[in-house]
Amino acid sequence: MTTTTETASDCKIVTFTLGKQTFGIDMGALIEIREWDEPTPLPNVPRFIKGVSNLRGNVIPVVGLAERLGWEPSAIHARSCILVVSIGGKQAGFLVDEVNDIVGITRSDIQPAPEVETIEASVIDGLVRITTRAKDGTRDENGTMVLLLDLEALSLTKHLDMAA
């Protein structure tokens, strides 16, 4: 987990994968990364809420992020992780396929995501290109596109209010 040494980065993001896509969230919202542990299922909640988990005495909801974003549910494997984030003072765990890296980006490099016609507001804040290290240690000059997630839009309270 090394940080790229690009100059003038003013924002750090944690990148992770869901299927073949690479996503990023603001490092400031991240509380911790945990191993996958089967949560306790809840009744009467949207399917993407996998249940609740015990985070050092706090009961936090665990969200299948892939389902929440409308993709196929993640299959649980050895590298499955839960990203514990804080959204507006509330904590939630996001199930992701693999955590990749922490990278610095420049806010001005963020490009807007294409408008998509969906019922709810887009949860993609923008797109940004990052250079990644290939397996052999050399830099992949083409870089990877990262979809930056808007955590506020992913807020569970907001969504459940709509569902209720």
Binding site: L42, G57, N58
Partner: peptide, 26 residues
């Protein structure tokens, strides 16, 4: 442990608790 601290009140549930083995019971 209230569920609405991090989630939303859920009908039919008064909250959750953490049992002796660290697992959660509703």
């Amino acid at each position: 442990k209230s569920l609405d601290q991090n989630l939303h009140p859920i009908r039919g549930l008064g909250g959750a608790t953490i049992l002796g083995d660290g697992s959660i019971a509703l």
